[in-house]
Simulated assay, not measured.
Amino acid sequence: MSNTIMDTNFQFVGQKSIYKGKVREVYTLEKDILVMIATDRLSAFDVVMPKGIPYKGQILNQIATKMMKATEDIVPNWLLANPDPNVAIGIACEPFKVEMVIRGYMSGHAAREYKSGKRMICGVPMPEGMKENDKFPNPIITPATKAEKGEHDEDISKEDILKRRIVSKEDYEILEKYTKALFQRGTELAVKRGLILVDTKYEFGKTTDGQIVLIDEIHTPDSSRYFYAEGYEQRQSRGEAQKQLSKEFVRQWLITNGFQGLEGQSVPEMSDDYIISVSERYIELYESIMGEEFNKANIANIQERIGQNVSDYLKKK
Rank of each mutant, 00 (worst) to 15 (best):
W78P: 01
W78L: 14
L79H: 11
L79G: 01
A81D: 12
A81M: 04
A81K: 12
A81Q: 06
A81H: 06
N82T: 11
N82F: 06
N82E: 11
N82W: 08
N82L: 02
N82C: 12
P83N: 03
P83L: 08
P83W: 10
D84C: 01
D84K: 05
D84A: 06
D84M: 00
P85F: 03
P85K: 02
N86Q: 06
N86R: 15
N86I: 02
N86Y: 11
N86M: 10
V87C: 14
V87H: 02
A88S: 15
A88M: 13
I89W: 13
I89M: 13
I89P: 12
G90A: 06
G90C: 13
I91H: 15
I91Q: 14
I91C: 11
I91V: 09
A92L: 15
A92K: 13
A92H: 09
A92N: 11
A92I: 08
C93I: 14
C93V: 10
C93Y: 10
E94Q: 11
E94M: 06
E94T: 13
E94L: 07
P95D: 08
P95I: 09
P95E: 09
P95R: 05
F96N: 01
F96T: 03
F96W: 11
F96M: 09
F96P: 01
F96Y: 05
K97F: 02
K97N: 13
V98I: 13
V98Y: 07
E99M: 03
E99P: 06
E99K: 09
E99V: 00
E99Q: 04
E99Y: 06
E99L: 12
M100Y: 10
M100S: 15
M100L: 08
V101M: 13
V101Q: 15
V101F: 04
I102P: 10
I102Y: 07
I102A: 08
R103P: 01
R103M: 02
R103G: 00
G104C: 02
G104L: 12
G104N: 11
G104I: 00
G104F: 14
Y105G: 00
Y105W: 12
M106E: 00
M106R: 04
S107E: 00
S107H: 02
S107W: 01
S107N: 06
S107K: 00
G108H: 04
H109S: 10
H109N: 13
A110T: 12
A111D: 07
A111G: 05
A111T: 07
R112P: 00
R112Y: 03
R112I: 00
R112F: 13
E113F: 09
E113C: 04
Y114W: 12
Y114H: 08
Y114L: 01
K115P: 07
K115H: 13
K115S: 09
K115N: 04
K115F: 05
